[in-house]
Amino acid sequence: MSETTAGSAGFTGEPTFRPATRADVPALVALVESAYRGDSSRAGWTTEAHLLEGQRTNPESVTEAVEDPEGVVLVVELDGELVACCHLERRPGSAYFGMFSVRPTLQGGGIGRLVLAEAERVARDEWGVGQLEMKVVEQRADLIAWYERRGFRRTGVYSPFPYGDERFGLPLRPDLRFEQLTKSLPAV
């Protein structure tokens, strides 16, 4: 992240990474919600507010991710404030990448690229896996393009959106579905 970006957002330090703890759950829920849903999400480019209303996550699912023995929730702090996160879940031969969130007012400044690079490092170097997998709402062409610029490939494998399950939000259109994306993690 450039000094200009950090300074313009009121931050002076470099981002630090650490595994989330149960004490982080309320801040993580607030961060994920702010990045994807409601008016606050419109300050960034990752908003889904035009596709979905309602919640993106809840304390129970974030707690489950934090306590998952086969995964880790990485948090990113700037000057002691939680500003970004992601969840990695270890799978046979791969790692699932999800819950990727950056504070909306900091989006576009390079923090997301740093989070993705750290997730790739953990998956490759600490877990020994050669691939990241994720699912993205197909209608999020701008987000899919961002991931493609970072080496992810569209697979053409789709899964339905969980209509009727308010834990995932309230769809504003009837055609939502997820596409699986993958990225190879060559050994370094």
Rank of each mutant, 00 (worst) to 15 (best):
V115Q: 10
V129S: 02
S101E: 13
F97Q: 06
R103C: 09
P104A: 07
G110K: 13
G110E: 11
V115H: 04
E118P: 13
G110L: 13
G110H: 11
W127I: 00
V122R: 12
V102K: 06
I111T: 09
R113F: 10
G130P: 07
A117T: 10
F100C: 10
G108C: 07
Q107K: 08
Q107T: 05
W127N: 02
A123G: 08
W127G: 00
R103W: 05
E120I: 04
G108H: 06
R103M: 13
G112P: 00
V102R: 06
D125A: 06
V102P: 05
F97A: 07
A123S: 13
R121W: 14
G108M: 09
V122Y: 11
E118Q: 15
G109Y: 04
S101M: 14
M99P: 05
E120S: 14
V115A: 05
V122H: 04
G130R: 14
G130E: 13
R103P: 09
F97T: 08
L114S: 13
G109V: 02
A117M: 10
A123Q: 07
G112W: 00
F97C: 10
P104C: 06
R121E: 10
G110R: 13
R103S: 15
A117F: 07
R124V: 00
E126K: 12
Q107R: 02
Q107S: 04
R113V: 11
E118S: 12
G130K: 09
L114Q: 15
G128R: 03
W127R: 02
R124M: 02
Q107Y: 01
E126D: 15
V115S: 04
V115R: 02
F97Y: 15
E120C: 08
L114N: 08
G98D: 09
V115D: 07
F100Q: 06
